[in-house]
Design a protein around this nucleic acid. Sequence first.
DNA 1: CTTCATGCAAAACATTTGCAGCTGG
DNA 2: CCAGCTGCAAATGTTTTGCATGAAG
Lengths: 146, 146
Amino acid sequence: MADPDARLQQMLTKLRDRKFRITPQRLAVVKILAQSKEHPTVENIYEQVKKDFPTTSLATIYKTVSLLKELGEILELGFPEGSNRYDGNKPYPHPHIICIRCKKIIDPDLMELQPLTDEVTRKTGYKIIDHRLDFFGICPDCQQKG
Amino acid sequence: MADPDARLQQMLTKLRDRKFRITPQRLAVVKILAQSKEHPTVENIYEQVKKDFPTTSLATIYKTVSLLKELGEILELGFPEGSNRYDGNKPYPHPHIICIRCKKIIDPDLMELQPLTDEVTRKTGYKIIDHRLDFFGICPDCQQKG
DNA sequence: CTTCATGCAAAACATTTGCAGCTGG
DNA sequence: CCAGCTGCAAATGTTTTGCATGAAG
């Protein structure tokens, strides 16, 4: 799980199975999303892809990211201010810790949330299909910098 | 807690203490945020306020909402697509359940998240100061409508 | 070959900002 | 009064869309 190369292959297989073309631009975006743990923005991905394909347009990155999101191959994290961030490494719901200073996002290993999900279902009658848990705080690095 | 009139008074007191003026427009916005459980958007608030003050501008609503957010009197819920939603009724972190069909948001009563927060602090060294927990699903009403 | 993807530019939104004039305390 | 609001309009930042050209399979 979360083996970068395995993820890459999974994502490519999904694209091929659904008859989407593997273009050089798509391959570049998929690689970045499968391998990075930085939870990049679309802009971040764009800058990376441009190194190899300078004529790539931002719209193409958006389109590819949307496609992967629809295929369930990446997780989208939206925030009130600033742009969305994406995780192709672990495309299933999992908690995040976000540093409010440097905006770094990491994935902590936490106890299961299943009991809480069950509790929600029992108490509300909602059919729960997804969740999101974020902690906001200050990372050790930023604590040291005062 | 979550008594609408008490919340309204708390919010007005905070504004007065910090020497902000209570204008008719602000009062209207604060009333809506203190009393509604619908987690309204800025646009929702704007429509409501215009009923009483037709010349109100959207910018004023945005400014008032930002001010209340800075004062810690409302909770801001951002989403990848669509606009932010606000909760003035319970301005402290608490879980939400969001219907992905009708976009209704309710507040379930759940077990405490403190143990999870402690676990995060212990495992990551982050100084946690806030969190957000959302469940996404289909509400009983929408389940019935197929 | 033919269909689908790309790249460009324009559009669509949500939100913020600058500023002249108004008004709450 | 007069500092601080309001309302307008213009600016910003992100994401989406339309369409002609180009390339994957």
